[in-house]
Each structure stands twice: as structure tokens, then as C-alpha cells.
């Protein structure tokens, strides 16, 4: 009691300083990576800062990025979702099968594309709702629930593809390519959608009652319950939102290759969770920031990109470097905790 009250002033000085490493850490790391990339590309005349390279990096980050924004809400509210990668693969398979089977009866290609999008979104919504229902109403640990659904969706897509690959009808494939590759010059649709989702997510997290409730539930579920917060409904909403965003990511992903296979979306869940953590959201919940997640996503994809530009380090070490960054991020987080 006395100790806590008395030590309060010095602590505040640190945790509220703008120079707090916890706030600046991810930004500094990103800046360092960009400098590193620029330096390397200057020495070997590669194209790190070219519009096409940046566009390429951002477009490819968009899938994980959009999912990671949803994951930020789930983790902030004290949850977790391991199923998003398998869910994306399953939804991709479902969309492809739906569009292929309707290709004979529906003439209009735009109509077919709309149906495909609708299928993706409703499948994502349903999958998220199933996770949410099992976590909230059935009171099963999020880790267990989503470990289960992760296996189920992965197995379902393997079964749908009969162990091989599900490919979109050729004419359709050509028709929908612009959804991934098109846009306004280097500003492709995936980048636009990612930016939109990120900005909206940041606003919701920071400015709305829903965002506040997520943090409150993650901080102490009992306090939220005793404060008349409908804990189950908010929790459910985070999983549904994430499912919906997995649907959105899948809509952008399918046009890229026009196919889905048992290896689609493998490890996406871990990359998304890693991005959230690198961004400074607390893994056990109670505090989350979407802008941090966006930076986390960019850091992870820049590492891969830079390794591809240089021979100094083998690209095969990509995973190792990402791993080091994730652990470092958590160490920083803990130091912040120690001062709380």
C-alpha cells in the first residue's frame, strides 16, 4: 500500500514519457530495417526503394496484415485464435468450389465474383462465430477451441482438394486477377484494403466503447462483468470480426494464384500473432494497439524482403531472424510491465 503509493511518481515519469522504448521500439525497429534495406540496395544496386518493390512487399503483407488487425482485438480481449490460417485455406477452397460450380449456370462474371465474395465473407463470419460460441457459451479455453478448429479446417480443405490443389476455372481466374494485381498504379487493391482496415481498426480500438470493452475484459474479466459489460457478447464480436477479416483476406488472396491447396495459409496464424506481439499488444490481453500491429506486419515482411536482396545472409534464415525479433519484442514488453 504505502510502497505502491510512494513509488508511483517515479514510475509515471518513465511510462508516460514520449521517449518510452515501449512506444518507440517498434517504430525504431522498422526505421532501422528501412535504413538497412536502403543501405544494402545502394551497395548492390538492387531495388529496395523502388515503387514496384514497395508495392510488392505491401501487397503481400496485406493478407497477414488484415488478419492481424482482427487478431489484435481478439488478443486484447484476452483471447487467441490459432485457426485463422486453416480458416483462410478452407474459405479459399470453398470460394473456388462455389464459383466453379456456378460458372456453368451464371453467365455474368461480375455476378459470379460477387457471389464468391459473399461466400467468403459469410464463411468467415460463420467460422468466427463458431470459435466465439465455443469460447464464450461453452466456456472452453480459446487455445483449445482454435487448436481444434485449426485441425478441422485444414483437414476439410485437404479433403475438398482430395489432397491436391483446387484451381479456379481458367476464364474466371483471368477475370479476377485485377483484384490482387490491379489498383491505381503501385497502389494495389490489397494495399488499399489493408490501409482501410488498419485505419478503421485503430479508430475502433482507440475511440469506441467496443475497443474500451476489449481492453477492460482482457485486463480483468471479472471487473468488466461486475461493471455491467456484456462480456460474452464483446468476446463473441472479436472472434466474428476476426473471421470476417479472414474472409476479406481470402477474397484478396484467391485472385493471386487462383488456387487453394492443403499448404495454403500454413503458419499464417503464427505470423499474425507475432505481428500483434511485436506491435506491443500484450499477449495476455488488456492492452492493444492496431498501429503497432501494422508496424509488426511490415517488420516481418521487410526482413524477408531484405534477405532476398542480399547474399550476406541466407534467406533460409528468415524464420530465425523473425524469431529473434519476436522474443526481443516480448522482452521489451516485460520491462514495461516491471515498471507498472
Amino acid at each position: 500500500m504505502t510502497g505502491a503509493a510512494a513509488t508511483a511518481p517515479q514510475r509515471r515519469d518513465r511510462s508516460h514519457s514520449l521517449l518510452d522504448l515501449h512506444v518507440l521500439g517498434p517504430i525504431l525497429a522498422l526505421a532501422a530495417l528501412i535504413l538497412l534495406g536502403t543501405g544494402i540496395s545502394a551497395t548492390n544496386e538492387s531495388t529496395f526503394l523502388s515503387a514496384s518493390n514497395i508495392s510488392n512487399v505491401l501487397s503481400r503483407s496485406a493478407f497477414i496484415g488484415i488478419i492481424a488487425v482482427g487478431m489484435t482485438f481478439v488478443i486484447t480481449a484476452g483471447g487467441l485464435d490459432l485457426s485463422v490460417g486453416s480458416m483462410a485455406a478452407f474459405i479459399a477452397g470453398l470460394v473456388i468450389l462455389t464459383m466453379n460450380s456456378l460458372a456453368g449456370t451464371v453467365e455474368s462474371v461480375p455476378m459470379l465474383v460477387l457471389v464468391g465474395m459473399g461466400a467468403a465473407l459469410s464463411a468467415g463470419l460463420a467460422a468466427g462465430a463458431i470459435n466465439g460460441f465455443l469460447v464464450t457459451n461453452m466456456r472452453i479455453e480459446a487455445f483449445i477451441v482454435t487448436l481444434g478448429t485449426m485441425g478441422i479446417y485444414r483437414s476439410l480443405v485437404t479433403w475438398l482438394a482430395d489432397g491436391g490443389t483446387l484451381s479456379l476455372d481458367f476464364t474466371l481466374r483471368t477475370a479476377i486477377r485485377p483484384i490482387y494485381f490491379g489498383g491505381f498504379g503501385w497502389l494495389t487493391w490489397p494495399i488499399i484494403v489493408f490501409a482501410f482496415v488498419a485505419v478503421l481498426g485503430e479508430l475502433v480500438m482507440r475511440r469506441t466503447a467496443f475497443g474500451r470493452y476489449c481492453a477492460a475484459i482482457g485486463s480483468n474479466e471479472q471487473v468488466a462483468r461486475y461493471s455491467s459489460v456484456n462480456v460474452n457478447r464483446v468476446r463473441m464480436a472479436t472472434y466474428v470480426l476476426l473471421g470476417l477479416l479472414v474472409g476479406v483476406a481470402t477474397i484478396l488472396y484467391v485472385p493471386r494464384l487462383g488456387s487453394a491447396s492443403p499448404t495454403t495459409g500454413v503458419l499464417w496464424e503464427l505470423e499474425a500473432i507475432a505481428a500483434v506481439i511485436i506491435g506491443g499488444t500484450v499477449l495476455k490481453g488488456g492492452f492493444g494497439r492496431v498501429w503497432g500491429t501494422v508496424i509488426g506486419v511490415l517488420i516481418l515482411s521487410l526482413i524477408g524482403n531484405i534477405l532476398n536482396l542480399t547474399d550476406a545472409v541466407s534467406p533460409y534464415l528468415n524464420g530465425a531472424i523473425q524469431g529473434v525479433i519476436i522474443i526481443l519484442a516480448v522482452v521489451l514488453q516485460r520491462e514495461k510491465k516491471a515498471g507498472t
Binding site: 474500451r212 481492453a215 477492460a216 485486463s219 480483468n220 471479472q222 471487473v223 462483468r225 461486475y226 488488456g286 492492452f287 507498472t340
Partner: peptide, 12 residues
């Protein structure tokens, strides 16, 4: 345990 979020500020 049930009344206040100890890691949040007074306003929240």
C-alpha cells in the same frame, strides 16, 4: 479483483 481495473487509469 472485481471492482477496478488496476492497470488502467482513473478515467477508464
Amino acid at each position: 479483483g472485481r471492482g477496478l481495473l488496476l492497470d488502467k487509469g482513473m478515467r477508464e
